[in-house]
Write a protein that binds this DNA or RNA. Sequence first.
DNA 1: TTGAAAGCGCTAACAA
DNA 2: TTGTTAGCGCTTTCAA
Lengths: 329, 329
Amino acid sequence: MKKNVPTIRDVAAAAGVSTATVSKFVNGAQRFSPSVEATITAVIADLGYRTNQLARSMITGRTGTIGLSVLDIRNPHYTSIVKGASRVAMAHGYNLLLVDTEEDPGRERPVLEALSRRVDGMIVFSRLREADMDWLVELGKPLVMFGRPQRPDVRWVASEDFRGAYMVASHLVSLGHKRIAYLGFSKSRRDQERMGGIRACLEAHQLPLDCYDCATPSAADGDRLCSSIMLGPERPQALICYNDLVAMGFMKAAQALGFQLPADLSVASFDNIEFGQYTSPTLTTVDLQSERMGVNAMEKLLAAIEGKDGGSTIIEPQLVVRGSTQART
Amino acid sequence: MKKNVPTIRDVAAAAGVSTATVSKFVNGAQRFSPSVEATITAVIADLGYRTNQLARSMITGRTGTIGLSVLDIRNPHYTSIVKGASRVAMAHGYNLLLVDTEEDPGRERPVLEALSRRVDGMIVFSRLREADMDWLVELGKPLVMFGRPQRPDVRWVASEDFRGAYMVASHLVSLGHKRIAYLGFSKSRRDQERMGGIRACLEAHQLPLDCYDCATPSAADGDRLCSSIMLGPERPQALICYNDLVAMGFMKAAQALGFQLPADLSVASFDNIEFGQYTSPTLTTVDLQSERMGVNAMEKLLAAIEGKDGGSTIIEPQLVVRGSTQART
DNA sequence: TTGAAAGCGCTAACAA
DNA sequence: TTGTTAGCGCTTTCAA
């Protein structure tokens, strides 16, 4: 038995009208005489006709699909962004073409170039340097990025990383910590801002800052670097991690090393992923409002697709104090 | 300035050959005379020509895209599945069209029907009952599902939920627990198997089983149901939760109520999400190998698309014992 | 090895 | 309100 998907021509023939009429009807483009309307409706139901999106897209140039590129879908920060973006997209009848670049800048270009031809717009979280992303903009698709690319055509949503970092640092200083360290992730563009915020705060208090660097922003790396930081010559009293995952891995490793947290070390980080509430101790963190970032980015993109300017947005961070930070005794 | 994306005709004209030749060249369909090959290559590079996938798809019927439908992307169990599936898809040059049905069976049909027209195959995690998914199969696309749908055309990957459940129950019994409860999620088809496995084990030991039911399989619901379970007349000595999220919410609430875990209550669950290692106490759970499920499902689907039969797979569960379960003293 | 021509299923002027 | 007609960019016979 052959699979015969009915086309608009089949419907037109069966209903005794032209394909143009069926097309207009399907797209609700105008009003029809009751009789025509009735027949077409009946025939469509009868044949089980469904319009071929591909064919439509080819003409209209619109695909009804949004491309979303994230760095690691397993990081709940990105997962929440996807969730937020997905909700808005679905509510507007768009689908989501998801790309996980796995923190590898080298994968971004080929993947996004291919993606750009089949979507109406893209939201991208990138590890590329500003200088290396001309091609992205030249793809000519509406584009929303995370971070703050200095390009006139690109709208973005960003968090105030500098300010958030200043806030955590300030919190730790006020708890009486003198020796504070930062376990960052230099491959990220946000790392500079975070380190800058921490440094600015500490300098204002004339305190030094020790910096360490992850290879990947993951629990595994927090774990891996723990011994060298905690058992080295310059053991910190408080540590700020690049993100919650790093902090979780680090805390667990520190406890395995015999340290009491937060008594021996206060730990704080960025993102406020859901699971920070369940760690032991619970995690003090800077809430970046991931889901809202996703929602916001998608709203901007849909606006751009409709030719409106959604502008750019800075989302204010909020310090969430939990059990992992404590006053120096 | 107008955006003029070069088409195959532009290339043909500039190279002085026919569009058919260019098409064949682009698709590497055959060999060409050196001169033709050289000119076409040069012209393509010069014009920056890239083939329009949409147009090609319309003819070939292949889209290079896989649809993946999950119930809640924020649940790390699904996130890992997506990760696994995504890796395999990208490695084979496929894109991923992601759908998050948000645990709402009512959304599945319209969304998947729309999806089916623009993908080469679908992997779906569904809350639909067997009886309600005829339409899914009739969409006529290669299909891989999670769970064990009893349909000849559908390949699936499933975990041995009954066995896994039996294992946890057995573990708790051997720890000396007499009053064991199950906090399930009856909307899931897997719930039956899990409850069955637990019950089978307890009956073998002539122990009773109290059952409770979540409205959603989330930490929020574990939290919400905690007081009624822990402060009711039939407080359990051990609790098996539907998944890790429920367990995490439950444990946290129980501790807030003043209970010592695992001394006052042993808790275990299913999935083995990464974050179960960081809770306090760390979570005893049944590892379902989420990422592998995703990988496996995608491999099966790609096989099906190529006309091969990837078969169906049952993935064996593994009990991961951590701190949340302890012998009854 | 190359090309001519006929569409894939649909939409969008423009006419009637 | 309805129909005619000309494609969208590409692949695919079939013939040269």
